[in-house]
Design a protein around this nucleic acid. Structure first.
Lengths: 106, 106
DNA sequence: TTATATACATAGAGATACAAGGTATGAGAG
DNA sequence: CTCTCATACCTTGTATCTCTATGTATATAA
């Protein structure tokens, strides 16, 4: 049985979250948990590698902050990241329309 | 560099096409080529394995037809396939809304 | 003191889609 | 007549993607 992939367009989601405020990993997961359908929650094994890639690509920068004993690693969207967000958002919209065009074919 | 996956929800597209008329593989690809953004065109290496799985799952049945020397393998959506289409369509909508909910967060 | 929540991270496995290749026929160009 | 292109099928291997499972460590609540 073919198993549906629960998530795609993951970096789009991450970039989108960071476009509003700096966030740390655990917080992103919690936020998505609320916003997203629980069926599509993002897992740690998915998020952290993406954050690393975004950082290597220069789309995000990061800094650490100690809060009551625990170290949080905050991520900040760079100008380059903003461009990437715009591109991925546009691509998502094209994707969305393409699928819907087929679904609602005459 | 992370490479965007160009397609997902592939079986949804196939089932959707077949809900309107019986079709053969090459025709589906050509039809999607027109309807879909060319960037998301479905490749043969993607389609044929899916058709086989759908057949194994009993979602489609198939029959051959000879047309001017060339053999076409037509696929027909079964009742079970219709149910699967309904499910996948619903899931697509939930996915779509979930992504958009994050993108358009206040 | 034990469990739960917070917070990071990685390795391995399974799923997914594509590129690249193969077979074969028909039609049109030269 | 031959070569190429379009039609029509299909498979193998590779790259990529996401999750599961696991690991570390601290704070807080029971």
């Amino acid at each position: 049985m073919r198993q549906k992939q629960s998530l795609a367009h993951t970096s789009l989601l991450v970039l989108s979250l960071l476009s509003r405020q700096d966030m740390y990993g655990y917080q992103m997961i919690a936020t998505l948990e609320q916003r997203l359908d629980p069926a599509f929650s993002m897992k740690e094994g998915t998020l952290y590698p993406i954050l690393r890639e975004l950082e290597n690509a220069g789309a995000v920068s990061c800094y650490e902050q100690e809060v009551s004993g625990r170290t949080r690693k905050y991520y900040h969207l760079t100008r380059k990241g903003r461009r990437q967000l715009a591109e991925e958002q546009e691509q998502w919209e094209r994707y969305e329309h393409a699928i819907n065009a087929v679904l609602h074919m005459a």
